[in-house]
Design a protein around this nucleic acid. Structure first.
Length: 329
DNA sequence: AACCATAACAACCGCATCAAA
DNA sequence: GTTTGATGCGGTTGTTATGGT
């Protein structure tokens, strides 16, 4: 144990009065924390932990709240839309999980980080390349992301057909695996009606679908959110018009701005263009690709570093990476 | 049924930053 | 200007669930 940690541990134990609990949280602890925050709000986590009667460090309480107990958390599978956004934002910002999480309402940096490590890095491993290598980035940009857009379009088309047929259920690929949240708030929008970053909605035409504007993104991962001022409840901006396929999904998608996994300081991040400011539009129709950032090429003809593209797709399908809930049916 | 491997998720650790004293 | 405590972030580890043999 290094000196810094010794100092951390001793100071926190002093604060907490000694016997600190570690490990999994119990339902009783969760309730204590939730009830205390509901009554007094967040912040001053060490004193909060003490006042709430929790034998936990302030850090632990904060993490538990942010990653698990917050009522505005969005639970369930990462949707294809979210996957696409994660890939794009990671290519831009690298492992800046909290920054990326700001653009995925209801998702935590921890969740995105876990997704990246368990799913994305797994495929890099299968391709026998480093996840930060140019090769893998090319695979993501030129194979994976366009295919994701295709999947989204296909799901959108399927949904449109369903709607025309009188069905009102979302496409399978957009359904979530259900909430297992302990304290799911009933007034929160259902996952499928969850908001999308404002810039994406705006780029798609703003008021389309009659959805209310997306809530303003918080300036920090979640630390600024509070139960009483939760921007998620009430506001239910709908997904962009599905009939337009993935055209709503815009991105500058400028490879030159990608940081290649190199961490940037916040000042640099501020200078980096947000995803849609380039005003470009993704479509993946192979015949019409105006303003496209992906090269107009057929996947079958594409070779990156000698990868076996067929096996790549096979591994993707096997992994149910695209549409987990659909594949699970 | 038992064991093992893997995936997914939760939690912790160490460090950096910032603000208040 | 320095110290100290609180907070946030990214990396890592631990635990549990699930599926295959």
């Amino acid at each position: 144990m290094d000196m810094a940690h010794e100092r951390d541990a001793s100071s926190e134990e002093e604060v907490m009065g000694g016997d600190l609990r570690r490990g999994p949280w119990t339902v009783e602890e969760d309730l204590l924390l939730v009830n205390y925050i509901a009554a007094h709000g967040e912040g001053r986590w060490n004193s909060l932990a003490r006042s709430a009667g929790l034998k936990r460090t302030g850090k632990s309480c904060r993490l538990r709240w942010l990653n698990y107990l917050r009522p505005d958390l969005r639970r369930g599978n990462i949707t294809p839309q979210e996957q696409l956004l994660i890939l794009e934002l990671h290519s831009r910002w690298g492992n800046r999980w909290s920054k990326i999480a700001q653009h995925l309402p209801g998702r935590t940096d921890n969740e995105i980080k876990n997704y990246w490590r368990t799913r994305v890095q797994k495929h890099a491993k299968q391709l026998k390349c480093d996840v930060n290598s140019q090769q893998f980035k090319d695979v993501m940009r030129y194979l994976w992301m366009p295919r994701l857009v295709e999947r989204i379009q296909a799901a959108a088309a399927g949904q449109q057909q369903q709607q025309e047929g009188g069905a009102d259920t979302p496409p399978l690929s957009w359904q979530h695996g259900g909430s297992d949240g302990l304290y799911e708030s009933p007034e929160l929008p259902a996952p499928d009606a969850s908001c999308w970053p404002a810039e994406y909605c705006a780029a798609a035409g703003g008021a389309q679908s009659g959805g209310t504007p997306a809530p303003e993104l918080s300036s920090t991962t979640a630390g600024s959110s509070s139960p009483s001022t939760d921007s998620g409840a009430g506001a239910q901006p709908s997904w962009p018009t599905q009939a337009d396929g993935a055209e709503w999904f815009t991105t500058a998608c400028d490879a030159s701005s990608a940081t290649g996994g190199v961490a940037m300081r916040d000042t640099e991040l501020e200078l980096a263009q947000p995803p849609c400011q380039g005003g470009q539009t993704w479509t993946t129709s192979e015949s019409s690709l105006p303003g496209l950032t992906f090269p107009d090429l057929a996947v079958a003809d594409f070779e990156i570093g000698g990868f076996d593209v067929d096996s790549f797709w096979t591994s993707m399908e096997d992994d149910q990476l695209w549409c987990p809930t659909q594949a699970a049916v």
